[in-house]
Simulated assay, not measured.
Amino acid sequence: MRRFLAIVPLALLAACGGTPAPDATSTPSVLVSLTQAKRGSAPDYVTAYGSATPATNGTQTLSTAQAGQVSRLAVTPGASVRAGQALVVFATDPSAVSAFQQADTALAAARKQRASTAQLLTQQLATRDQLVQAEKAVADAQASLAALRRQGAGQPERTLTAPFDGIVTAVPVAQGDRTQPGAPLVTVARSGGIVATVGVDPADSARVRIGQAARIVRLSGGAAIAGHVIRVDSLLNPKTRLVDVDLAFPAGALLTNEALRGDIAVAEVAGWLVPHRAVVTANGPAHIFQIVGGKAHSVPVKLLLSGETTDVIAGALDPRVRVIVDGAFQVDDGAAVRWAGR
């Protein structure tokens, strides 16, 4: 019985002339989306990568001209500070304080010697040359004392303060460290003095100019930030072998050391504007597809500029005919297509 039931459908199929024929009226087609090509222009970008760093003229490193010891650190790297805010308390080396005291004593002695010489001159017991030498000794002692005072030698302890509103970018010392004259103690970057420094390929550096618009994008994500070029180096960075370019941006938009990408608009390219997805570049010259009589019609084009979302092309496009966007890579010339609403 089972064999009989299995044979009956096959027999019926054979009696009907074999396998069912496809519907001759159905036409295979690809579902596509369409848009209209427009005349216009788009910026040509030079793309470079780098990070947010203090501008070369936007930082100040504080130090002392005397040896001494860091008594107290009032800030840490990354701290926001106001002008006049205490940063470091520094104890001047005792030998420097002693030198100041000796200079002060030497000035007092020189003044006393000058007064004595002047009195002897009135009694004709000293010469005018001796008075000149005494006055010179006073002037020398005054100059030495003033220099030591400017260097802070007269202050056993001094407080270094922020020269302007900004951010502490470096504190290369620790509390209790003994330092030599001129050793850096703290570096402050001016508020708004942070720039985006990117490395441009030397082949593209000639196209970059001060004042050109730029967009800055965090590598960690987020919206693009508007900026512009404020500095272009004329030599290679010895570490990266690229040309450093500084981009200005609104204050507070980026944090120091953030990794970023800079897109610098070096020119405007004019032509037909179409979505990037509409331009087919695989398997031969670039082309697009326009809809003619419900079918895809291939139009050769020249790709003038390739962008993330929009391309600029040149070619014999019919501005009255729509262009295939989604599905452009799935159709062939003359293939039937369908789209929403049809």
Rank of each mutant, 00 (worst) to 15 (best):
A328K: 01
A162D: 06
L160Q: 07
Q85C: 08
D311E: 05
P319C: 13
R39E: 06
A196M: 05
D246S: 10
A24E: 15
I7N: 08
V331L: 13
G284K: 10
T35D: 07
T310M: 02
V269W: 03
L254C: 03
V186R: 02
T117G: 06
S26M: 11
V301W: 02
A110S: 13
V132E: 14
A96H: 05
Q124M: 09
Q85F: 08
L160G: 04
L31K: 10
E268R: 15
T59I: 11
P275W: 07
T47A: 13
D246P: 04
I216P: 00
G227Y: 01
P250C: 06
G176V: 10
S98F: 09
I288P: 00
V301C: 00
Q85Y: 07
L255F: 10
G315C: 07
L304D: 04
A86T: 06
V279G: 00
A134L: 02
D326S: 10
A286Y: 03
T61H: 05
T310F: 01
L185M: 15
K239H: 11
V217T: 08
V81K: 00
Q124A: 14
Y45D: 02
N237I: 05
K295S: 12
A126G: 03
A110Q: 04
P163L: 01
G17V: 06
I225T: 14
L121I: 13
D23R: 12
G18Q: 11
A106G: 15
R39K: 12
A170K: 12
G334Q: 03
T122K: 15
V132K: 14
T256C: 08
A110E: 03
W272A: 00
H297G: 07
T281E: 03
A14Q: 07
N237G: 09
A267H: 13
V70K: 02
G50K: 05
S95L: 13
P94Q: 13
V88M: 03
F4G: 09
S205Q: 10
V188S: 03
R2I: 13
T105P: 07
A141N: 06
L235P: 04
L12D: 09
R128P: 10
P184I: 04
D204K: 09
R241N: 14
Q66C: 15
G271Y: 04
A286Q: 09
A223V: 10
A270C: 09
G166F: 00
Q180M: 11
A137P: 00
P300F: 08
A314G: 14
V89S: 15
L235A: 15
V88Y: 00
M1W: 11
T117D: 06
